[in-house]
Write a protein that binds this DNA or RNA. Structure first.
Length: 208
DNA sequence: GTACAGATTGAG
DNA sequence: TCAATCTGTACT
C-alpha cells in the first residue's frame, strides 16, 4: 500500500454511535418527535456485525418509528410490559430483537430514556456483497445473522453489533416519509401516521 | 390449560 | 393470493 493510500484509508471516518444519539434531551414537539428525528438521522448510518474476525455491514436506507404507549401498532401500547418488550423501557441504545410470524427475526433499536418505550425498526440495508439482500426487516436480520441472543444487546458497547457514522449526511429532500407497513390492525389513526422513512431512490428499500 | 393473531417472506 | 411456523398474549 502506498503511503497516500494508507493515509486515505485512515481518513475514512468510522465513529460508533454513542448513547447520546439514542437518548436525546428535551421534550417532543409532537408525540414521538425525538424518535422520528432519530429515525431520520439513522438513514445513511451503517450497521456493523462482527463474527469472529469478520465484519458484515450495511448502510441503513429504511426505518420505522414505534412510539408506545399511545401507539396502537407498538408492542408497548397501553404501557404493557412483557418479557418480550421490557427492553423497550430501558434507556435507548439497546437492540430489541424478536420473532415475527414464527419465523423471521426483526431488529429494532430502543430510543428515548428509561420508561419511554419507543424504538426504531430497521427495515432495509444497502449491502456490499454481490447477490445478497437485506431489503426487509426479516431479510436484514438473516443477512446480519441476528437472533434472540441479541435481544437486549447494548449496541453502544457491544463488540459484535454496533452502528457507525461514516460521515454521510442524508439531505432532507432525499428522505421519503410514508405510512408504516403491515400494521393495518392498529386502526386508521395509527396506521396512517407517516412514521416510515427511507432514502429516495435506494434500490434496497422494501415494498416500493 | 386452550385459542388466536401477527412490525414477513417467498412461492404459485 | 396464500401458507409456513411459533411465540406472546388473552382468555377459560
Amino acid at each position: 500500500m502506498k503511503r497516500a493510500d494508507f493515509k486515505n484509508a485512515k481518513a475514512i471516518k468510522r465513529k460508533r454511535l454513542s448513547r447520546s444519539f439514542f437518548v436525546r434531551p428535551g421534550k417532543d414537539k409532537a408525540y414521538g418527535g425525538r424518535s422520528v428525528k432519530i429515525a431520520e438521522n439513522l438513514l445513511g448510518k451503517f450497521v456493523v456485525r462482527r463474527i469472529g474476525g469478520k465484519k458484515i455491514s450495511g448502510r441503513i436506507v429504511e426505518v420505522e418509528v414505534y412510539a408506545g404507549p399511545k401507539d396502537r401498532a407498538a408492542h408497548s401500547f397501553g404501557g404493557r410490559i412483557t418479557p418480550r418488550n421490557k427492553v423497550m423501557y430501558q434507556r435507548g441504545g439497546r437492540a430489541y430483537v424478536y420473532l415475527v410470524y414464527g419465523m423471521h427475526w426483526q431488529m429494532n433499536i430502543v430510543t428515548g430514556g428509561k420508561n419511554e418505550p419507543q424504538c426504531v425498526l430497521l427495515r432495509a440495508l444497502e449491502v456490499p456483497e454481490e447477490g445478497k439482500s437485506a431489503s426487509g426487516p426479516g431479510k436484514l436480520c438473516r443477512y446480519l445473522r441476528l437472533d434472540k441472543s441479541f435481544h437486549g444487546e447494548d449496541i453502544t458497547s457491544s463488540d459484535r453489533l454496533w452502528l457507525e457514522d461514516r460521515g454521510e449526511k442524508i439531505d432532507q429532500k432525499d428522505i421519503v416519509r410514508a405510512k408504516r407497513i403491515g400494521i393495518d390492525y392498529a386502526g386508521h389513526y395509527w396506521s396512517s401516521r407517516r412514521w416510515r422513512f427511507y432514502v429516495k431512490g435506494s434500490p434496497a428499500v422494501s415494498r416500493k
